[in-house]
Nucleic acid binder design. Structure first.
Lengths: 207, 207
DNA sequence: GCGGGAAGTAACTATTTGGTTACTTTCCGG
DNA sequence: CCGGAAAGTAACCAAATAGTTACTTCCCGC
């Protein structure tokens, strides 16, 4: 009986539920398409609480971006090199569909808005990734004539395209990126592509 | 004096102006963010005319997609192979910023909507591109172990990323893709990347 | 055990916004 | 040259929606 009847008056839980609901709805509908009432309903709370905790629809959107794009994002453990790096990156991205869509909404709806949410933290994560690539180039595991930052951007793009542009994936392959078979096929492709890039290292690699 | 006072009552011009205004506004704001009145104002006409010619906001959006994504798109003359193909594709995409954004809005706002606007025409364009790649593979100009459709999707993605995700480009390189210097730098990178991929062809090429 | 503030609710509003109605003006084929 | 249809306009409307006001309920430090 003393099992702490966790129900009424739990501000943290309420905030969490609002953020979860907002993430899903913003990811599917975007900031303009999302309805504050719908978010409140999905969170099982009242619209007023959203304004209580986040001030405005935009404030809520920023909070979602902060929570989703900064911490524990698919790109926050990217420090991978080796032939499976592209395939693994795709799988990580595919496992968090909200992430890609939020990234797109951020690009479209807050385009020139500067600074970004959690700009410094995100920059740091990417910079670390660039460092790993640079080190791999020094070791002869990646072509050294390719600018490392551009290479990171490119490999992100390679893993991202089908998820960001499912129409194109479907027009080209007849399958949609949700389809496990699509992902499996592309995984094979990405393994070979990574191998091809690595193979392009001019001189002999390490040892 | 007989120079045909082209002003009042010119339905074609009106439709064209509406479409132009709509393309720009939809590209920047998306379907939910766009205001029908704003489009009418920018077109120098009345909101009623939009409904007269296009039936609804959604109908107008579809018309824009049809006009923009089907004909004379940057991807409609892609049948290029060779070391400059990636750099040229990027330049073509960069010269039509509306195109990339409309592609993103299409992905986000009409996601599972099937069929796409002008689906068959677009599929045909891409299929032709895939054929060109397949032929290049047969000639030994491109690695033959890479699925051609996946390769086309990938190269599109490579050229698209910085334009679609300018935040990431900025976080990684400190520059924004509008910046001519960014494009120049990435052009160099893309030339080398294409060369690296080509170089990965296992056996000796043609001749 | 009480009082003040935070958590929560519900009903309201001011505005915005797709979409329409009702009307006038121009064009052009017969 | 005229009559009907298309082009164009302006004022209007109902629904939706972000944000508030005004209120009640609960928690917890003192």
């Amino acid at each position: 009986m003393a099992v702490a009847r966790r129900a009424v008056r739990d501000p943290e839980r309420t905030q969490r539920r609002i953020l979860d609901a907002a993430r899903r709805i913003f990811a599917t509908r975007g900031i303009d398409g999302a309805r504050v009432d719908a978010i409140a309903a999905r969170a099982g709370t009242n619209k007023r609480m959203i304004y209580h905790y986040f001030g405005s629809k935009d404030g809520l959107f920023r909070a979602v971006l902060r929570q989703r794009l900064a911490d524990r994002t698919p790109t926050s453990t990217p420090a991978r090199v080796g032939p499976e790096r592209l395939a693994d990156l795709q799988d990580r991205l595919a496992s968090e569909p909200d992430y890609v869509r939020l990234l797109m909404w951020e690009a479209l709806e807050r385009g020139r808005r500067r600074p970004l949410e959690e700009e410094e933290a995100r920059r740091a994560v990417l910079a670390e990734w660039v460092d790993v690539v640079r080190a791999a180039q020094a070791d002869g595991d990646l072509p050294a004539d390719l600018d490392p930052a551009q290479l990171v951007l490119t490999e992100l793009g390679v893993a991202l395209v089908p998820l960001a542009f499912p129409q194109l994936a479907r027009l080209l392959t007849g399958r949609v990126p949700d389809d496990p078979e699509f992902l499996a096929e592309r995984r094979t492709f990405l393994l070979r592509l990574a191998a091809a890039i690595d193979r392009a290292v001019p001189a002999g690699g390490r040892a």
